[in-house]
Amino acid sequence: MPLGWDEPVDLERDPAPVPDPAEVEVPDALRASISAAMQRYPERRSAVLPALAAAQKVHGWCSPEAIHQVAAVMQVTPAYLSSVATFYDMLRTEPLGERYVYVCTSVACHLLNARAVYEAIAEEARDQELEGVEVRNFECLGACDMAPMASIDGRYVGPLSEDDAHELVAALKEGREVLPGRGLPDEGFELPWAQHGPQSPIPTHEGPQSPIPEGEAP
């Protein structure tokens, strides 16, 4: 269960104050990246999402320590930052791994067997004892043309089948590129149906014709 909604609150304890920047040690690169983000917006609070994402890159998740560091640089309360971190799916509130595999299981992928693909990948990850990688099903990733698909640290691969699960997990485990040539930004990447020949004839309507509203026919 993620931290946040379901955590009992200690009502006796005072809320954590805004940390004193002088007392909190923050890695230099992280501090620089948060400060730069704050300068890009008219209001520094707008930098919360980029700042948490940067801290997550350093710590692997939005740990209490990571939140404390961001709070010190941004001068906001840790509670405010955890409220934001628990809302967004890409911000981890548990140490699940520094890399991720999001397998899309929303409608378009669902129609093309995504659930089985996800379960196969999750099972392979258990069998091969994959560590440091968050494997989860995810809501629509916006790549329904390559369904069923998954995002591996932001690189979209697809279309996938259950047979790809073993190689996908093995490549992640060995630090190799996952399914080379089958990722969205890959050189020469093409969907399998891109080279289909002439288009098939359009079947005409069988059964009663529905009327096209008058004046709107093209």
Binding site: V107, A108, L111, L112, D145, A147, L191, W193, A194, E216
Partner: peptide
């Protein structure tokens, strides 16, 4: 954007009003 159970899912730019 056409997706789901079709043979060639993808993006197509069309004139509005096409059947």
């Amino acid at each position: 954007s056409v997706s789901g159970n079709v043979q060639r899912p993808g993006n197509f730019e069309v004139e509005l009003g096409i059947p």
